[in-house]
Design a protein around this nucleic acid. Structure first.
Lengths: 248, 248
DNA sequence: CGCAGTCCTTGACGCAGATCAAGAACCGCG
DNA sequence: CGCGGTTCTTGATCTGCGTCAAGGACTGCG
């Protein structure tokens, strides 16, 4: 409940989500951070790589606007996306030297960064930070495990429906849109990126999107703009019990 | 480094891994716990279910001996294992009412449990706990993401090789065995459980294990006892770059 | 000992999704 | 406007793994 509260607070503030979400709702840490200049912003263009796996990573960060992805690549080029970062999501691991995954901007992206060393010191002295980070990391772990079910057991059609449901839901949450009626959003990913996320090929993604369109589960304008006339229908196609997957 | 130290300490102590690993190396929390009787042990037989997904879960726990698994099940019965808990691993989420996954003992199992409510209070007053839990949760998240690559992009043969490498490695770590020579261990999972972990069917698991045996990558005595004459060969089959996957 | 139950192996066959290939739609740019 | 580049769609074919089916190995029990 304390958590829910601070999440709401962050909606009012277009400035830096890390302040409210990761550090401390009371902002004493943020004050400190500003004073010591450990906090700064970076922006990237769509397609730019933020960090390569294995590179030294001297900051932790939180997405302000845009979408970034985490991907792993095998030697022979097979790629698997292992995370999608939307506004307010956190990247970087306190206590680790090097990045474990490639981080790429898939849209124009602004991140709010904290230099790692002082951030770790801050964490050691401000218990709220570790607790909030734990909260967020547990959410990510749940999302990752939900994704494991998708990757291991769902059909291509179910995978696509699940992805659309998740993106649409997160998009709606961002815009505070509790509008009734159809869910409408733009895909922030190319077909290839979708494929890398879902463990499919881009051809299969394209075919299944077309099939969902043909069957009236979704409508699309252009290639990226999605309209979901009936969310329950989509969730049914996603094969999810309960409420469509993510517990967040 | 503080972490590493406490992990070593836990090796010397057959009592309760949670004490050193999750709570606090200095044991003040443990002392408190004992006094207030919030800590207790439970044992389960192989095959027993510890908790069903959705059930109320009023404790958090750490595995003392044996192996437990976390699985998700879809309405139509498709199952995906999303975690394997070996000694010293932690289950349960502070702040959540109900279990998100089925937890099952695959071997005889002893767990060290903390009643959740007091554990959460302990966490609020003892910063070390949240920090240690964050550490552990980040490790689990890395493992989950590694597993996403396996589920999404690896072939059946690579999946089997990866699983064997991970089990063998963890087994070796438990027994402090830095012995050179072949890696030897017993599989704690049935073929069906392996299949549920890897997103395969049990027939495919069986076939691929046979194939790895035929090709001399592994030897097996009975159905569960595995000998890996050449670990590098196995890792190569697993398709892993670096050191075989888990960063732990 | 035989018998039932569990776990595992192996074979034959089919299909979902990968692969290969061609071209369409859309974009910015000269 | 035409042109090249990127992204997407769709078709034809192939294949790795799932499905179905039969039987073997091992265990505990009467």
């Amino acid at each position: 409940m304390g958590v829910r509260e601070s999440a709401q607070v962050s909606q009012e503030c277009g400035d830096c989500p890390i302040r409210h979400r990761a550090v401390c709702a009371r902002c004493e840490a943020d004050e400190l951070a500003r004073l010591e200049q450990i906090k700064y912003y970076r922006s990237y263009e769509a397609g730019q790589t933020v960090i390569w796996a294995g590179d030294k990573m001297d900051f932790v960060a939180s997405v302000v606007t845009g979408v970034a992805t985490l991907t792993q690549t095998m030697e022979d080029g097979r790629r698997q996306m292992v995370g999608m970062l939307l506004p307010s999501d956190f990247v970087g691991r306190p206590g680790r030297q090097n990045a474990a995954y490639d981080v790429t901007a898939t849209t124009d992206l602004v991140m709010c960064c904290f230099r790692k060393k002082p951030f770790e010191e801050l964490m050691a002295t401000t218990p709220h930070i570790a607790q909030r980070l734990l909260e967020m990391t547990l959410d990510e772990l749940d999302a990752a495990r939900e994704w494991m079910l998708l990757l291991g057991r769902k059909t291509a059609r179910e995978k696509i429906a699940s992805l659309l449901a998740i993106i649409g839901r997160r998009d709606a949450a961002l815009h505070l849109a509790r509008r009734s009626g159809p869910m409408v959003f733009d895909l922030p990913l190319t077909r290839e990126e979708m494929a890398d996320y879902l463990g499919l090929t881009l051809e299969t993604v394209s075919r299944q999107v077309s099939a969902l369109k043909r069957d009236g589960v979704i409508q699309l304008e252009g290639k990226r703009h999605i309209i979901v006339p009936n969310l329950d229908r989509l969730l049914e196609e996603a094969g999810d019990d309960s409420d469509g997957g993510f517990l967040v």
